[in-house]
Amino acid sequence: MKQKRPKILLPTLREKDRYIKFQVISEEPIFYPDLEQAIWNTFLDFFGEFGVSKTNLWIIKNLYDEEKQIGVIKCNNKSVQQVLAGLGLISRLGDNRVIFKILKVSGTIKGLKLK
């Protein structure tokens, strides 16, 4: 059975989102589960559970392009700098050394121009 959802909040009461488009530069291919695990682990280690809760962080699974290694992270507008800083601390995904390149920050997914 589908779970009932609360009513959608008024625009003034809603949190403003930001979408960060990034590219993972690496020598070996990077797959989504490794990426997701590394991001969550690094953020929880560095900012703690309470710190991450304030960012409203979410990694959007269906927008990750495994071929180009381009992905999208959602957070709120007040914690963009915090999330970018956190991404810089990821230097390894499993055995692979990686660099995160920030491609764009936008208020909408459409604005990221993924296609």
């Binding site: 963009v80 810089g88 230097s91 990686v98 660099i99």
Partner: peptide, 18 residues
């Protein structure tokens, strides 16, 4: 010390704000 330790300028700027 390695090209993998180079960081995106946006990342370094954001880290400094923290």
């Amino acid at each position: 010390l390695s090209h993998f330790e180079l960081k995106d300028p946006n990342v370094i700027v954001s880290f400094a704000t923290q």
